[in-house]
């Protein structure tokens, strides 16, 4: 990976904020940063190729489209972990699933097309595994950002 220079870092920070909705949005951002449109596009493309930027584009909110997300957690007995995991991951609604260092050792996100889908899927997992599924829907979201030293 090419080491990031100051211009790359400034781009990375600016491009995490909303892109203006204009015909030539990159030209506008390039002007803000004092570089050319070509330079901006080339650097963003390079950072994408090198996977410094995973994705560039619209962030969609499934909830605003009528769907729902819910963080869930289970305290799975260690000896049953793999068997429970197979049953949980078999549900297409399970988007991300992480093993974590806690008595509640399995944490996953359910993504469903309707709000009712969350309860139905969590209930089904409880029935299939015999393990309670704690549900942590978001009540409030605070600003999501991540900044590199620029």
């Amino acid at each position: 990976m090419t080491p990031l220079d100051d211009t790359d870092r400034a781009i990375l920070n600016r491009m995490q904020d909303d892109l203006p909705l204009t015909e030539r949005p990159y030209a506008q951002v390039a002007r803000e940063l004092g570089i050319t449109e070509d330079d901006l596009l080339a650097r963003v493309a390079r950072m994408k190729d090198e996977r410094v930027i995973t994705r560039f584009g619209p962030f969609f909110d499934a909830a605003a489209m009528g769907g729902a997300f819910c963080l869930c957690a289970m305290a799975v007995p260690p000896e049953d972990f793999e068997a429970v995991l197979t049953k949980v991951n078999a549900h297409p609604e399970v988007a991300h699933n992480y093993e974590r260092t806690h008595r509640l050792n399995m944490w996953f996100v359910l993504a469903t097309e309707t709000p009712e889908g969350i309860g139905a899927c969590a209930d089904a997992i409880e029935r299939e595994t015999g393990v309670q599924v704690l549900r942590f829907p978001k009540l409030q979201e605070f600003f999501i950002g991540f900044r590199v030293a620029a």
Partner: peptide
């Protein structure tokens, strides 16, 4: 429905 048009950084990288 669209929250913003932006880059997702790769923290690991």
């Amino acid at each position: 429905v669209i929250r913003r048009i932006a880059a997702a950084p790769n923290h690991y990288k």
